[in-house]
Amino acid sequence: MNDVITDRTSRGRSVGLVPFLFGLAGSPTLPGVGLRRLLGDLGVSDDAARALLARLTRAGQLVSERHGRTVDYRLAGDLARGFERIRSSDQSGPVEWPGSFAAVMYQVPEEHRAFRDAMRRAAVLAGYGVLQPGVLISMSELGDRLDGVLAERPGSARVWPARLALSVEDAAEAASIAWDLPGLARSYRSHLTRLDATDAVPDDPGEALRAYAETVMPVLVETLREPRLPAPLMPADWPGTELRAAVGRFSGAVMPRVHPYVAELAGGVHR
């Protein structure tokens, strides 16, 4: 297997394994011992898994609950929001272009770049596109999607909700830039090629889980970036529907081997 999952040069890839495993288990909570076992199947040592869970808990991305000698975890923060967006994803966008994007304009002094980066990261997870530095766009209003990060806004930072009115042609060009639709389409087609060329899945459930994660997890990360836009704003040959169908076929072939194993560990059988 390659190192697509546990690239030791990037903490982010190991972090992404945690909501991925929650999604496979289909449970809002997972026992620590089962979660570490599953992370081990994906190439993360037990010590590294313990450190990862502790770090995510300190950062507010996990909540731990102790029950006697055992600890259960549930997703929180950005991990929970990203997880919910994937789980509740409905790729059908509005039928017609309403004439304007919801926009967020911001100006943040360089000394508060940590807040700026956190706001931008939370906005992208919430479905915003980055049109240019200082301008985010979305099909829906701000609502409460950024309340958590905006509560930490420094006094010198400025954030202005707005509307950006554009013709259909200009809106399509803006969407292409904000969500990098050409680059995303190339990535989708690359995933399609890989899914079509995937070899037979191992019989061992732990090895099958690793093979499934290496193949599907990068696709899920990419589908999280796909905006929900009216058809006139999307490229005519957009491969999103084809990619999701390919993932469905691959999952249908692999999950009968993986799901009982994950369900057993998620249920805390080996606590």
Rank of each mutant, 00 (worst) to 15 (best):
245 A>I: 08
102 A>C: 07
15 V>P: 00
1 M>D: 07
212 Y>F: 06
104 V>F: 12
207 E>V: 09
69 R>M: 13
260 P>C: 03
36 R>P: 03
41 D>T: 15
51 A>E: 07
224 L>P: 02
257 R>A: 13
168 V>D: 09
249 R>M: 13
123 A>N: 04
40 G>H: 00
87 R>T: 13
198 T>Y: 15
261 Y>W: 10
29 T>A: 10
209 L>E: 01
9 T>I: 07
29 T>S: 08
255 M>V: 03
76 A>W: 02
69 R>G: 15
200 A>F: 04
144 D>E: 13
220 L>D: 15
126 A>F: 01
166 L>Y: 06
211 A>M: 00
99 G>H: 06
110 E>M: 06
252 G>K: 05
74 R>V: 08
215 T>N: 14
77 G>R: 03
133 P>C: 04
159 V>F: 10
101 F>R: 06
227 P>Q: 02
110 E>D: 13
69 R>S: 14
259 H>E: 14
201 V>K: 06
177 I>L: 12
188 Y>N: 09
92 S>A: 15
160 W>G: 09
30 L>M: 02
226 E>L: 13
115 F>S: 05
13 R>E: 02
269 V>W: 03
136 L>W: 07
82 G>H: 11
80 A>N: 10
162 A>Q: 05
155 G>P: 00
270 H>R: 14
229 L>P: 02
79 L>A: 03
195 L>V: 01
140 S>M: 12
74 R>D: 06
204 D>R: 00
215 T>C: 15
159 V>Q: 09
236 A>Y: 15
17 L>V: 02
19 P>M: 01
165 A>G: 10
208 A>G: 08
200 A>H: 10
61 Q>H: 09
10 S>H: 06
12 G>A: 13
252 G>P: 05
261 Y>D: 06
167 S>W: 00
246 A>H: 12
190 S>L: 14
245 A>E: 13
260 P>V: 05
228 R>Q: 15
22 F>Q: 04
80 A>Y: 10
171 A>S: 03
43 G>W: 02
68 G>S: 08
80 A>Q: 08
95 V>K: 14
94 P>K: 01
196 D>T: 11
171 A>E: 11
254 V>G: 14
142 L>F: 06
123 A>V: 04
58 R>H: 09
170 D>Y: 08
110 E>A: 14
142 L>Q: 06
195 L>G: 11
32 G>N: 01
101 F>H: 03
72 D>C: 13
103 A>N: 00
45 S>W: 02
54 A>Y: 05
159 V>N: 11
177 I>R: 09
31 P>E: 07
187 S>Y: 11
246 A>G: 13
211 A>R: 01
245 A>K: 13
187 S>D: 12
57 T>S: 14
53 L>D: 04
242 E>Q: 15
158 R>C: 06
127 G>S: 00
111 E>H: 12
246 A>K: 09
159 V>G: 08
170 D>G: 12
202 P>C: 10
119 M>E: 07
82 G>E: 12
135 V>F: 08
58 R>G: 11
81 R>W: 00
158 R>L: 11
201 V>N: 02
198 T>D: 15
123 A>R: 02
209 L>P: 04
226 E>F: 14
22 F>D: 03
140 S>E: 09
51 A>M: 05
121 R>I: 04
113 R>I: 05
36 R>T: 05
194 R>A: 05
136 L>H: 11
119 M>G: 00
95 V>S: 14
81 R>L: 04
85 R>L: 04
71 V>I: 12
